[in-house]
Design a binder for these strands. Structure first.
Length: 295
DNA sequence: CTCCAGGTGATGG
DNA sequence: CCATCACATGGA
């Protein structure tokens, strides 16, 4: 395992648990596995700014530096919402306190999270499957999908081969039953539609990457089963559109409870990163935000 | 057994 | 525009 020094803290555990990705796992105590495309990384947290990684320097620079979004300075991005800087800017005294304090607490709680730059097709497929499922159930469904249909790759770190995410071409030729068998339920037809549109060029990732936000959003919403939340997830996590804010049930509850119903996410170039801290905070404090029972 | 899950589409006001 | 409802099935 090779040593990697980082300019900012990075937490393998928080990233894995943050709800933006479903395949990273902690295999045994402290050993994490990440996969993107056909690349597999084994990784240990040495200190908060030092990792031990299984790949060579070249692969780290060409693949994983981008995947972990290491060229972005998160401290600079978050500075306006933290401590002294924020107080200095609110001398007028009119700014609200509960909301901004909540944002600050969320950033501190999730410090070390990176918003990963993941594979666009994998994000589209994964978030289509995610609707009306719990995060553990999403992980199970995606794992089954990969194990059944994904290409296998041997590594020096595990006895069993690792399953890559199945390419869209592989899913186009499956029978409906084969997809249902992964616990996809009614989402199987949605996934099929996404696979076909990705293969026939309608949603070709390399072309979509060059589109403006509005056009990309339109294209994604053209898939059956993709609405605004999933489209924003794919844009944020798959196409690096860091201003997009996927608004789901958790975010709605937070807006209601902490921001008096007013959208706290400004029309800002990095709003999606803030969203990720706030979302993680909610996951880590579920009891506080869980749905009130109706009566 | 019951209830909920990182929503969406169809339908009806 | 907003309010409901069905949708399949794994977790808790």
């Amino acid at each position: 395992m090779r040593k990697i020094r980082l300019e900012e803290p990075l937490s393998l555990r928080k990233i894995t648990d943050s709800g933006q990705c479903f395949r990273p796992v902690e295999l045994e105590s402290g050993l994490y596995r990440f996969i993107t495309g056909a690349h597999i990384l084994y990784c240990e947290q040495h200190t908060e700014t030092e990792l031990r990684v299984s790949c060579g320097a070249r692969e780290w620079e060409q693949v994983w530096r981008n995947y972990f979004d290491l060229d972005r300075n998160y401290r600079a991005v978050c500075a306006p919402f933290l401590g002294e800087k924020r107080r200095a800017e609110t001398v007028s005294g009119t700014a609200d306190t509960s909301g901004t304090e909540f944002v600050e607490a969320s950033i501190r709680c999730g410090w070390g999270i990176r918003v990963l730059r993941q594979n666009p097709w994998e994000m589209l497929a994964s978030f289509i499957l995610s609707q009306r499922k719990s995060i553990p159930a999403i992980r199970t469904a995606i794992r089954l999908l990969c194990e059944r249909f994904g290409r296998k790759k041997e590594t020096a770190y595990e006895a069993a081969p690792v399953s890559l995410f199945p390419a869209p071409e592989l899913l186009c030729n499956l029978s409906p039953e084969e997809l249902l068998d992964c616990g996809l339920g009614y989402r199987a037809a949605y996934l099929r539609d996404a696979a076909e549109k990705t293969c026939d060029g309608t949603l070709e990732p390399a072309r979509l990457a060059s589109l403006e936000d509005a056009a990309l959003y339109e294209a994604l919403c053209g898939v059956h089963g993709v609405g605004k939340k999933i489209a924003n997830c794919v844009m944020l996590f798959g196409y690096g559109r860091s201003e997009r804010v996927p608004s789901d049930v958790w975010i709605s509850r937070i807006v209601e409870k902490k921001f008096a119903g007013t959208d706290p996410f400004p029309d800002w170039e990095n709003a999606g990163l803030l969203q990720q801290y706030v979302f993680y905070y909610a996951l880590e404090h579920k009891a506080e935000f869980r749905q009130e029972l109706s009566h």
